[in-house]
């Protein structure tokens, strides 16, 4: 049963990582425009990649 001492922390850390990733995506406003995000990808090919900007957070 000592294997539990490794497996449980590993499982929890993986889970926490996923939770953290979700909270980050929520914070960076990725769920604010679900409709736009779904459509935007279809138009990306014609324009040069946007420079990385972190001022997308409108709120």
């Amino acid at each position: 049963m000592t294997v539990l001492l490794f497996l449980i922390p590993i499982a929890l850390i993986l889970g926490l990582a996923a939770l953290g990733a979700f909270l980050w995506s929520l914070k960076s406003g990725q769920y604010e425009d679900m409709e736009g995000a779904a459509n935007r990808i279809l138009f990306d090919d014609d324009e040069p990649p946007l420079p990385k900007k972190d001022d997308d957070k409108t709120d």
């Binding site: 604010e32 425009d33 409709e35 736009g36 459509n39 935007r40 138009f43 001022d55 997308d56 409108t58």
Partner: peptide, 29 residues
């Protein structure tokens, strides 16, 4: 539709001096 979002953003970005133009399609802002 989404093409209008694309058009407006492209038209604005082609103007001199525009740094950022982004439409939220859900809220239309």
């Amino acid at each position: 539709c989404a093409a209008c979002v694309w058009l407006i953003e492209m038209v604005l970005k082609q103007q001199d001096g525009v740094h950022h133009a982004r439409i939220n399609m859900t809220t239309r802002r």
